[in-house]
Structures are given as structure tokens and as C-alpha cells.
């Protein structure tokens, strides 16, 4: 558990160092995802995929991901400082959220189906 948490923090730390020292406009934890994925691929290659999928890092990660909702509550409560901004832009916000969400669902599923159909033989679905 502690070792898994250490690896997660170390990947985030390395991600922050890389992002800041290279001046990349990407959040450090996102680079951390790429680094951890590379570590897992290396571990899977050397010790078998099962050890990478169920090892201590996986256990710690599963524990955090099971309660993912909790960790963005402190940021969300900050909305209390933005009441005025939200009320003043209510229509733009609601319209942007509703229309964009529906269109993004349609566009994504359409492209996925279209490209799947271009690949003959691999298609198991009707």
C-alpha cells in the first residue's frame, strides 16, 4: 500500500519536474500517467502482465479510483466564490453544456461506427 502510494507520488513528482523544467503547458499528473504506464509496461514485460495488473501499485490505484469523487469536492466547493459569474452567464452555460454534450456523443459514436465498418472481417457486432 505505502509502496504503491510512493510510486504514484513519484510519477506525479517526475511529471511536475518534467512539465516545469521543459515549460510544457501540460498538468504534471498527466505526464505522470504516461510515466506510470511505461513503468507498468516494463514490469509486465519482465515479470508478466499479471504482476503489473495486480501488484501494490495497482492496489493503491484501485483504492484511490474507488473514491475518485471525493477528491474533487474541495475544488468544486470553490463554486461558492463564483455565483455571480454563473448567474450572469446562465444561458450560455446551459446551452453550451447541453448542446455540446449531445453533439459530442453523436459525433464520437458516429466516427467509431464509421471506422469500424471500414475494417472488414474484424467486425463482430451487427
Amino acid at each position: 500500500m505505502l509502496f504503491g502510494l510512493f510510486i504514484l507520488l513519484a510519477c506525479q513528482l517526475a511529471g511536475e519536474i518534467i512539465a516545469r523544467s521543459l515549460g510544457l503547458p501540460i498538468p504534471g499528473p498527466v505526464i505522470g500517467i504516461v510515466l506510470l504506464f511505461a513503468l507498468l509496461a516494463l514490469q509486465g514485460w519482465r515479470q508478466g502482465a499479471a504482476s503489473a495488473e495486480t501488484g501494490p501499485v495497482a492496489k493503491s490505484a484501485d483504492g484511490l479510483l474507488a473514491n475518485l469523487g471525493l477528491v474533487f469536492i474541495p475544488a468544486g466547493v470553490g463554486i461558492s466564490q463564483n455565483y455571480q459569474l454563473v448567474f450572469d452567464n446562465g444561458l450560455a452555460l446551459v446551452a453550451a453544456l447541453v448542446i455540446s454534450t449531445v453533439l459530442t456523443l453523436i459525433v464520437t459514436v458516429a466516427i467509431f461506427r464509421f471506422v469500424s465498418r471500414l475494417l472488414p472481417g474484424k467486425e463482430a457486432q451487427p
Partner: peptide, 26 residues
């Protein structure tokens, strides 16, 4: 004042994001 306490949860945001590499690998 609230965030002085809640920051301990907020800090977990980073490692929890890194943790997404696990389902991705699976």
C-alpha cells in the same frame, strides 16, 4: 478557512489522476 481543512483531500487529486494509468494498462 474551509480549504485549510479540505486541502488534504484536494492533494489526493494528483496521485488519483496518475492512478488512471492502471485501468489504461489493463
Amino acid at each position: 478557512t474551509y480549504f485549510d481543512g479540505a486541502q488534504f483531500i484536494h492533494f489526493i487529486l494528483g496521485p488519483a489522476t496518475v492512478a488512471l494509468a492502471i485501468p489504461l494498462y489493463r
